[in-house]
Design a protein around this nucleic acid. Structure first.
Length: 264
DNA sequence: GCGACAG
DNA sequence: ATCTTGTCGC
């Protein structure tokens, strides 16, 4: 892959004001509606009954299933290990990684300026052309609607979604505690977000839940680029396979840890 | 000053 | 993110 709009590449040497200004431009360039050509119902392993019963799901003769790339990182002293795992129909078709120097610390709201460059390094080594990019972090659920998933999605002009394990800003429409698997509720913009209060900017998604007692927290899914909040939630659930994290992200996390181990 | 804050 | 074993509950 190659950045299609390098003017949006995150510059770690920029001042805080410049970083925030770029994020506002990224948000303006972003599309929070569905604007892709792949078939969302064919993402993931696709072992759910409605699409398999009729047998219309593309087999050897049908069109290829969409390629979904998961991106995650692991950290060394002064470097980041960025890993990308591409899946097609639940099968790994490619893995790529990069080890990059880190320049700035983690600052809430400016994550893409710390991790964006390293992630671009890894994505540039990917030979496949992913239909969808799944990031570990927020997309539209961000103060300026320009979280990591949105920023990267715009730089590569590729459909993307953000999957965070905790909420950066906004508020769930209702309590998210102890919900059943498959449940979801909208995340509404609050005063911390650059949009009218109450707008849906993402979803809390219960990707996994124990049958009793102990509770698992939901995932916070939001549009990165070219994907709506509703579709982002659908796509992430389709990518889940028995674990809290969707497979693309979970496998990228594993891969990043493997690479890190070799450098330790 | 206080609170809140992805990875 | 990272430092890390056991342990709770089915």
């Amino acid at each position: 892959m190659e950045p299609r709009y390098p003017q949006y590449l995150p510059d770690p040497t920029a001042t805080r004001e410049e970083m925030e200004a770029l994020q506002r431009r990224v948000a303006e360039a972003a599309t929070f509606d569905d604007a892709f050509t792949f078939d969302p119902t064919r993402v993931g392993r696709g072992d759910d009954e409605q699409t398999t019963l009729g047998g219309e799901r593309g087999g050897p003769s049908g069109p290829d299933a969409p390629v979904v790339a998961g991106v995650d990182q692991a950290f060394l002293d002064d470097a980041a290990v960025s890993a990308v795992v591409c899946l097609q129909g639940g099968e790994v078709v490619e893995r790529a990684h990069a080890v990059s120097e880190l320049s700035i610390p983690y600052i809430p709201g400016l994550l893409s300026f710390r991790e964006g460059g390293p992630i671009v390094d890894a994505l540039e080594r990917v030979q496949t052309n992913p239909d969808l990019l799944v990031f570990d972090g927020s997309g539209r659920i961000h103060y300026r609607q320009a979280g990591l998933a949105t920023h990267m999605g715009v730089v590569f002009d590729r459909p993307s979604v953000g999957v965070a394990k905790s909420l950066l800003c906004g508020r769930p429409r209702e309590s998210v505690d102890g919900r059943p698997e498959g449940w979801r509720t909208p995340i509404l913009a609050d005063s911390d977000v650059d949009v009218p209060d109450g707008r849906v900017i993402g979803y809390a998604v219960q990707s996994r839940q124990y049958e009793s007692s102990r509770k698992i927290n939901p995932l916070y899914v939001s549009p990165g680029h070219r994907v709506s909040a509703e579709t982002a939630a659908d796509l992430v659930l389709r990518c889940c396979d028995g674990y809290k994290l969707p497979e693309p992200t979970r496998l990228a996390d594993q891969y990043a840890a493997e690479v890190k181990a070799e450098y330790t």
